[in-house]
Computed example of a mutant assay.
Amino acid sequence: MDTQVARERLLELRRELQETIEGVTSRMEAGVTADLPTGGHDFGDEGAHEQQAAEQDAFVEAARTRLAGVEDALRRIEDGTYGLSVVSGKPIPEERLEARPDALTLADEEL
C-alpha cells in the first residue's frame, strides 16, 4: 500500500477513534442512568446499569488499544518500516493492509 494513502487512512481512523472515545466517555461521565426510565428502582434496573457501564468501559478500552495501534502504524510510516511484519520482517500483503491499515503482522503470525 502506498504510504501516503496509508497515512491518510490511518489519520482518518485515528480521528474516528478519538471521536468515539470522547463521545462514549462524555456519556459515561454524564451518567448512563439518564437513559433509564424514572420511577421505581429495583435491582434489575441497577444490574442493567452496571452491565451497560461495564460494556461501555470495555468498548472504550478496545478503542484506546486500537488507537495506540494506529499511532504505532503512523510511527512505522515515519521510520520506513510500515507494511513489514514486526515479528518476521516480511512484507504484509496488500489485501491485509487494505482491510486493516494498522496491521502489525502477517495473518498467521502471533505477537
Rank of each mutant, 00 (worst) to 15 (best):
E61T: 12
D35M: 10
A54R: 09
L13Q: 11
S26G: 15
E19N: 11
P101W: 01
A6K: 01
L97W: 00
L104P: 01
D2E: 09
S88E: 00
L97I: 00
A53T: 15
V87R: 15
A48K: 08
D57R: 15
T25N: 12
E71M: 06
E8G: 00
T33K: 11
Q51N: 12
L11R: 12
A107N: 13
E12F: 05
P93Q: 14
A107Q: 12
S85I: 06
R64G: 05
D42W: 04
A103W: 00
H41Y: 08
E22A: 15
R75A: 13
I92R: 00
D45G: 02
R15N: 12
V87H: 10
A63R: 12
T105R: 15
P101I: 00
D35W: 07
D79T: 11
A68Q: 07
A48W: 03
G69M: 07
L74E: 06
R27C: 15
S88K: 03
L111F: 13
M1G: 03
A58Y: 05
E29S: 14
L111E: 13
D79H: 08
S88L: 02
A62D: 13
P101Y: 02
E46Y: 07
D2V: 00
L10S: 04
D35E: 10
A30L: 15
T25D: 15
E19T: 11
T25W: 07
E78R: 08
R64E: 14
F59Y: 14
Q18R: 14
A6E: 04
Q4N: 12
Y82E: 06
L13S: 08
E109I: 01
F43Y: 13
L13G: 05
A30E: 14
R27A: 15
T25E: 15
L97C: 01
R64S: 08
A62Y: 10
D79N: 09
K90D: 10
I92S: 00
E94H: 05
D57W: 04
P91H: 07
V5Q: 00
L10E: 02
E16H: 10
T65V: 13
P37I: 06
H41D: 08
G47S: 10
G40T: 09
L111Y: 14
